[in-house]
């Protein structure tokens, strides 16, 4: 078996724009799934609506492409009815934190044994670039033409507070680390939440002075602050530079989980 076997090769190339990082995250996930030796017929990919949620359509397992924001309850149903399945959810920031916010915190509270991979492109990409709950303050989008004036969600803190067992954040630039985080999250009993910041040059970068992929990737690379480094800065009492976001494993604990394979 190779990673190529996990793709529905007849459907490639996929619909993502040139330079979109969603494909990178699918690569990292499938690489992780493959390295764990999971079987195609025992793995279910579930998604909601949005760019990110098109991903299961390109993966050759049984897959469920559901309604907007509802991927987690669908996945809960699959996992509770048949705990022997490995369930992975692909979702986006709008899908997960706006319309699916309630489902998200409750899935974390139940600590159900699924892996949630959130492709956070900080925008509603598929509908044409409207502001999402993760759009940074001041960023331009079609619905925030004068700059976003609401505070964005920190999805990782939300997941931690709600009770998820494993929480990590990486970007689509950090492919190796992301691959390791997903591999770890897939094995972890309980809800593993991996937020991946992903470039959207078409709808986010274009309006925010990051027109090409390279500049978006460089911006993500420059603003990523390792958790270990942040902890060191905090311990030394040094200020954390503005506009940085923390990457790394943010939570790793062993609370009782629901729906774990017997």
């Amino acid at each position: 078996m190779s990673v190529e076997d996990w793709y529905r090769v007849d459907r490639l190339p996929h619909i993502f724009c040139a330079g979109c990082g969603n494909g990178t995250i699918i690569n990292c996930t499938l690489e992780a799934v493959e390295s764990l030796g999971w079987k195609i017929d025992e793995t279910i990919f579930v998604s909601g609506i949005g760019c990110s949620s098109r991903a299961p359509g390109y993966i050759s397992t049984d897959s469920l492409h559901t309604t907007h924001g509802r991927a987690l309850p669908f996945a809960t149903g699959v996992k509770m009815a048949k705990p022997n399945f490995n369930v992975v959810v692909f979702t986006g920031d709008g899908d997960l934190s706006a319309i699916g916010g309630n489902h998200f915190i409750h899935a974390c509270r139940r600590n159900i044994d699924i892996t949630v991979i959130c492709m956070n492109n900080q925008i509603y990409g598929m509908t044409g670039g409207q502001g999402s709950p993760c759009t940074p303050k001041g960023a331009l989008s079609t619905t925030t033409p004068y700059g976003m004036d609401e505070n964005p969600f920190d999805l990782c803190e939300l997941a931690t507070a709600a009770g998820a067992n494993y929480v990590a954040r990486w970007t689509s630039y950090h492919v190796k680390e992301l691959n390791q985080a997903i591999t770890f999250g897939l094995q972890k009993p309980g809800l593993s939440f991996i937020e991946v910041l992903v470039q959207c040059p078409t709808n986010y970068g274009r309006r925010n002075k990051l027109r090409d992929v390279q500049s978006m990737i460089s911006a993500m690379k420059d603003h990523a602050l390792l958790k270990e480094k942040r902890d060191r800065l905090l311990a030394e009492g040094k200020p954390i530079p503005d506009g940085m976001f923390v990457v790394g494993t943010l939570t790793d604990r062993n609370r009782p989980a629901l729906g774990v394979k017997q």
Partner: peptide, 26 residues
């Protein structure tokens, strides 16, 4: 069998569709 109390009816309906696709009467 499995009983689960969901967070709202939207999620309940979603969960039984997920359950039904695993081949269990939901």
């Amino acid at each position: 069998g499995t009983f689960i109390q969901m967070e709202d009816e939207i999620a309940s309906m979603a969960a039984i569709i997920g359950g039904a696709w695993t081949g269990v009467r939901s």
